[in-house]
Simulated assay, not measured.
Amino acid sequence: MPICLKKTLKLFFILLLFSCKGKPAKKEKSNDSIDVHKAVAETPIGQTVENCYDYLTELVRSSNFPFSEWKIDKKKVNLLIDDDNEEVISCQLITDTEGSGTIGWIEYRKKDGRLMDTSANLEQPSELKYDTKWKDLFNSCASRY
Rank of each mutant, 00 (worst) to 15 (best):
M1V: 06
M1E: 01
P2F: 01
P2I: 00
C4E: 15
C4S: 12
C4M: 04
K10P: 00
K10G: 03
L11Q: 12
F12C: 03
I14N: 04
L15W: 06
L17Y: 08
F18S: 06
S19R: 02
K21H: 13
G22M: 03
A25V: 14
E28V: 11
K29W: 03
S30M: 04
I34R: 12
V36M: 15
H37I: 03
K38E: 14
K38H: 09
A39Q: 11
A39R: 05
A41C: 02
E42G: 10
T43L: 15
P44C: 00
P44I: 10
G46L: 06
Q47K: 13
Q47N: 08
T48H: 07
V49I: 14
C52H: 11
Y53P: 04
Y53R: 07
D54F: 13
Y55I: 07
R61K: 15
S62Y: 07
S62F: 02
S63A: 05
N64L: 06
N64V: 02
F67R: 04
W70Q: 14
K71Y: 03
D73I: 03
K74L: 00
K75M: 00
K76D: 13
K76V: 00
N78Q: 09
N78S: 15
L80W: 08
I81A: 07
D82N: 09
D84A: 13
D84K: 07
N85A: 08
N85H: 05
E86L: 10
E86I: 07
V88I: 15
V88D: 15
I89S: 09
L93D: 06
L93T: 10
I94H: 01
T95P: 03
D96M: 06
T97Q: 13
E98N: 14
G99N: 13
G99E: 12
G101E: 12
I103V: 15
I103A: 11
I103M: 09
G104K: 02
I106Y: 04
E107F: 01
E107N: 14
Y108T: 08
D112F: 04
L115E: 08
M116S: 07
A120P: 00
L122I: 12
E123F: 12
E123M: 13
E123S: 14
Q124M: 10
P125S: 02
P125F: 01
L128A: 12
T132Y: 05
K133M: 14
K135H: 08
S140E: 14
S140G: 14
